[in-house]
């Protein structure tokens, strides 16, 4: 079997651009998804059932439907009425963030609930507000326990960003598909894509291991 490195070299500049797109969208979505996720997770722990319900429904919807479908809904349904037309970059950011938020919410909830209630009681007994108890006492301990779960979530998010090729977001898979279309080759474009994703997720897991040891 011949393996044509020359077409990989030819596509390298756009593949690198695609990689930067994937990295950028992933980082932005991890950040927004985590912030939304914290809010959703706290909401899901609300004392009253009717207050929990909207958060519950959100999480169930985004966990219970394929990201593939969510991307199409966001791209053709959600963004055009707001932005005026479709935009792959906005879709990428919005769809991944909304999806990641649902998973992050569960990680936050489980992490927070894993902390001994005595910690919260001690904080409250010192006159702290519920917010202060959460910020200074519960979250710092919970986040350490959440790191492995977040590691999984972030890795899944990076890999799932490949689905954005569907709406022609110029990320890694999109350019690999283009490469395949131009040269009618299978191994070169897809192996290259696989290697790039592997490098990204492997580096990410190393980074998270490092953070886990440091915290």
């Amino acid at each position: 079997m011949d393996f044509r490195f020359d077409i990989i070299v030819h596509y390298l500049p756009v593949l690198l651009k695609g990689t930067l797109f994937t990295i950028g969208v992933s980082i932005a979505s991890i950040l927004l998804g985590s912030i939304l996720g914290l809010g959703l997770g706290l909401g899901k722990m609300a004392p009253k059932a009717y207050l929990r319900w909207p958060f519950h429904s959100y999480i169930n919807f985004f966990r219970g439907t394929p990201l593939y479908v969510q991307i199409l809904i966001v791209h053709f349904g959600l963004i055009p009425p707001i932005y005026g037309k479709t935009n792959a970059l906005i879709t990428a950011f919005v769809a991944l963030s909304l999806n990641s938020a649902a998973y992050s919410a569960e990680i936050f909830r489980a992490g927070i609930q894993s902390i001994d209630p005595g910690q919260r009681e001690a904080a409250l007994s010192l006159g702290m507000t519920k917010g202060q108890a959460m910020r200074f006492v519960i979250l710092p301990q919970a986040i350490k326990r959440m790191i492995p779960a977040f590691g999984n979530e972030f890795i899944v998010l990076v890999k799932d960003s490949s689905l954005l090729a569907l709406v022609a977001a110029p990320e890694i898979m999109y350019w690999s598909n283009t490469m395949k279309g131009q040269y009618l080759r299978i191994w070169e474009p897809y192996l290259t894509a696989a290697v790039i994703y592997f490098i990204l997720t492997y580096s990410l897991s190393k980074l998270l291991n490092y953070i886990e040891r440091r915290v």
Partner: peptide, 27 residues
């Protein structure tokens, strides 16, 4: 109204001195 618990409930992520300083500083 200070409270002392059966299980101590010290904050494990903070040093002894930080455990004691936290509430006076924040509250």
């Amino acid at each position: 109204v200070g409270m002392v618990f059966q299980q101590f409930n010290l904050f494990p992520h903070k040093k002894v001195i930080e455990n004691i300083m936290l509430a006076p500083v924040q509250v």
